[in-house]
C-alpha cells in the first residue's frame, strides 16, 4: 500500500510524463516551459551547493536551468525513470562544466574559496577602519589565517581565465556606470590610438571607465572602488583582466 507521500510523488511523476509526452510527441513548447517551471526548485537546490565560489547564485541557477532544459529535450519516454532523477546529473554536470570552463572553482580547496569570498568585504572594512590600505598581515589576522593563505586565496579569485569582462565577478550584478550612462573620455579621444583603440573599445564601458580613472586620472583603487560602487579587490581584478584582454587583442 502506498503512503500519501508516495502517492503524491506518483502524481507528480504522471503529470511530468504527460507534459513530456505533449512536448516530445506534439511539439507543445508550453509543456516544456511548464516542466522547466516545475523543476526550477530542484535546480535552485542543486545550484546552492555551488554557491560561495565566486559566482553569483543567480548565474549558477541559470546554468543549472540549461542542464534541466537539455534533460527535458533528451528525455526518452520509453524509460521508466522520473524526470527529476534523470535531470539531476544533467543539472550538476552543466554547473560543474561551467566552473571547469572558468578554470578554478571546482579544484580549489573549499577553505580557500570561502576565504576568497570574505576577502573583498574584509579589505574594504579594514581600509575604512584604518584609513589606509591594510597589509596582508592585517587581512590575515582579521580572517584568522596566515599571510600565505590570504595570498593564495587572493590568487584563487584572480585566475587567468577568459572570463567575460561584462559578467559580474561576484557581489555586484548591477553596473552603476551603465545606469549613469557616462560618456567615455580620455584614451579614446587621443590621436595616437589606432592600435589600441579597437581593443579598448571592445571592453565594456565600466572597464573602460575604470582604466581611465586609474591610468589617466591616476586615482587609487580605493577611490575608484568608491566611485563605481565595487569592492577594491573587484576593481583590481577588472583592471588586470581588462589589460590582459587588450593585450590578447593586440597579439
Amino acid at each position: 500500500m502506498s503512503t500519501a507521500k508516495e502517492s503524491g510523488r506518483l502524481q507528480l511523476r504522471d503529470a511530468d510524463r504527460e507534459l513530456l509526452r505533449r512536448y516530445h510527441e506534439l511539439g507543445d513548447e508550453s509543456a516544456r516551459d511548464a516542466l522547466v517551471e516545475r523543476h526550477m526548485p530542484l535546480v535552485r537546490s542543486l545550484a546552492r551547493r555551488y554557491a560561495g565560489r565566486g559566482e553569483p547564485l543567480e548565474d549558477i541557477e541559470q546554468v543549472g536551468a540549461i542542464g534541466l532544459i537539455k534533460a527535458i529535450d533528451r528525455f526518452d519516454l520509453e524509460r521508466e525513470v522520473a524526470l527529476a532523477t534523470y535531470a539531476t546529473p544533467n543539472v550538476v554536470g552543466e554547473i560543474k562544466r561551467h566552473f571547469r570552463d572558468k578554470g578554478w572553482a571546482i579544484r580549489v580547496p573549499r577553505a580557500l574559496q570561502e576565504m576568497n569570498a570574505k576577502m573583498s568585504a574584509t579589505i574594504d572594512r579594514l581600509t575604512s577602519t584604518l584609513g589606509r590600505s591594510p597589509s596582508i598581515g592585517e587581512i590575515a589576522e582579521s580572517l584568522q589565517a596566515t599571510p600565505e593563505e590570504v595570498l593564495e586565496a587572493m590568487e584563487v579569485g584572480s585566475a587567468y581565465t577568459t572570463l567575460s569582462l561584462s559578467a559580474p565577478v561576484g557581489e555586484d550584478a548591477a553596473d552603476p556606470l551603465e545606469v549613469i550612462g557616462k560618456e567615455d573620455e580620455g584614451f579614446e579621444h587621443s590621436e595616437d590610438r589606432e592600435e589600441l583603440a579597437p581593443a579598448l573599445a571592445r571592453l565594456p564601458q565600466r572597464e573602460r571607465e575604470i582604466l581611465r580613472m586609474r591610468f589617466e586620472e591616476g586615482l587609487p583603487q580605493t577611490q575608484i572602488a568608491e566611485q563605481v560602487g565595487l569592492s577594491q579587490m573587484h576593481v583590481s581584478r577588472l583592471i588586470r583582466r581588462s589589460l590582459m584582454a587588450m593585450r590578447e587583442e593586440l597579439d
Binding site: 579589505i123 591594510p134 596582508i136 598581515g137 587581512i139 599571510p147 595570498l151 590568487e155
Partner: peptide, 18 residues
C-alpha cells in the same frame, strides 16, 4: 604573482601597493 605577493607581504606593503 604569488611570490611577488609574499615578498611584498614581508616588506609590510599594504594591499594596494602589493
Amino acid at each position: 604573482r604569488l611570490i611577488v605577493g609574499g615578498i611584498a607581504e614581508r616588506a609590510d606593503f599594504g594591499f594596494e601597493a602589493m
